[in-house]
Write a protein that binds this DNA or RNA. Structure first.
Length: 406
DNA sequence: AGTCCACAGGAAGGGCAGGCGA
DNA sequence: TCGCCTGCCCTTCCTGTGGACT
């Protein structure tokens, strides 16, 4: 009985939600999964990529290509855009071209050399056991499979730096030399990376081979971000659902970081969601401010939650100490409090050397600000302050107390 | 100019867990 | 299943350092 009552109430709620005036026409347009029809301010780079890869349409082997730039600069989108168009032309012209896109950050796909090559072979319909064969054998299966007809394969390895991190650069060495093993088909590598310096640690042969052609994607400026948001906003929102200044504000927030379009789109989406939840008739600038705060808060809380116990203990010690010693504290003081708290709560005590590293990590996470300062006669230390507002701090404290059971 | 503080942070290596491959 | 390998977390030991103090 109660179930019927409450479910009918719930259904009323859903129904009224569906009847309400909506802000979003197609929210997907603001996510990274969406493939827009236009990519503003990237024509020059798209043309460059297309020129480099065009020989593939004549079944000639294009140069390997390395695309790099910070997050949200349109690298992946541009490469995929070129691929899609090439595949279309190839199909019309009857050219045997295969484009393979792999995100190396995906687990169980690119964790190890073996897994990646096995995954590649499986893309050509070859069933390779997920473990058990020698890596050489898997390579052999892969070579044989792709070499069974004359064709060009474009292999896009997104977040290629993650692949190297996880399984070393021998896989790139093998892939860049693959054409020596193939008789009929050709393979070109397109590496995409957010990490601008990752090639520095590569084997020099791999480095020169992968970087036959390089394209750097620069960050967008505020004006360019505005154009992108306008374009996507048209697809995502109903007409007149966006108040004046909303797009400019989102663009300005994102440009302040490093011109990250993904962040700008995310901000616009969250602002829309907030407006919708508040039953507003349109998205206003105040919703963008709220969205900015919400994203910031979620980012910090998520970051803290993911930290290992010892890191949480160190952070808790810093916050605890800052209560009595605003606005900043030093490494030595933090370590004393940390020892006291871990002792009282029954946690293992790390050395000061290790705690010093944990403080650096928390700094990199953006949860605290730690600056090395010299106090002359009184030594060198880190000056540590909190990198979050008071309301967020309170939520972080609650989270820490809860998870550390303090 | 020299000393000295309170660390920062590099190097080397131990212990452990988990994955790999025969 | 089991030995081997690797990566991660951590300790120990150490050298380096900016600037107040003498």
């Amino acid at each position: 009985m109660w179930r019927n009552m409450s479910s009918s109430r719930l259904q009323d709620r859903f129904n009224s939600y569906l009847e309400e005036e909506h802000i979003f026409e197609n929210k997907r347009a603001l996510t990274i999964k969406y493939f827009p029809s236009k990519i503003p301010h990237r024509e020059e780079y798209i043309n460059k990529i297309a020129d480099i890869l065009a020989p593939a349409l004549r079944v000639e082997n294009p140069s390997n290509l390395f695309v790099y730039g910070k997050t949200g600069t349109g690298k992946t989108l541009s490469v995929k855009y070129v691929m899609e168009n090439m595949e279309e032309v190839a199909e019309k012209e009857g050219v045997s071209l295969k484009c393979l896109y792999i995100n190396c950050n995906m687990r169980k796909v690119a964790d190890t050399e073996y897994r990646l090559v096995a995954h590649l072979a499986s893309q050509f319909g070859e069933d390779v056991p997920s473990t058990g064969l020698p890596t050489d054998e898997v390579y052999r299966i892969f070579y044989d499979t792709i070499d069974d007809e004359e064709r060009v394969i474009l292999l896009i390895l997104d977040e290629i730096d993650k692949l190297i991190q996880k399984s070393g650069d021998s896989i790139l060495y093998n892939l860049t030399r693959i054409n020596n093993e193939l008789e009929r088909s050709e393979l070109s590598l397109i590496g995409i990376s957010n990490n601008l310096t990752f090639t520095e640690n590569l084997d020099s042969r791999v480095k020169s081979s992968l970087g036959e052609e390089e394209i750097l994607f620069p960050p967008y400026d505020a004006k360019q971000l505005k154009d992108i948001l306008k374009e996507r906003g048209k697809d995502a929102f109903y007409e007149d659902a966006l108040g004046g200044g909303v797009i400019s504000k989102c663009a300005a927030y994102a440009a302040r970081e490093h011109g990250d379009a993904r962040r700008a789109l995310n901000l616009l989406r969250v602002a829309g969601e907030i407006a919708e939840r508040k039953n507003a008739s349109k998205v206003g600038e105040e919703h963008v401010d709220m969205a900015e705060r919400k994203i910031e808060r979620d980012k910090i809380l998520m970051g803290v939650r993911k930290q290992p116990t010892q890191s949480k203990l160190v952070l808790y010690s810093i916050i605890d100490l800052l209560r009595s010693k605003e606005p900043s504290v030093q490494t030595g003081d933090v370590y004393s409090i940390y020892k006291k708290i871990s002792n009282q709560s029954g946690y293992r005590q790390l050395t000061q050397r290790r705690v010093s590293d944990l403080i650096s990590e928390l700094d990199m996470l953006g949860v605290i600000n730690a600056k090395v300062i010299s106090k002359g006669r009184y030594g060198r230390t880190r000056e540590i302050s909190l990198g979050m507002s008071d309301p967020i701090k309170q939520r972080v404290v609650n989270l820490l107390e809860n998870e550390l059971k303090i």
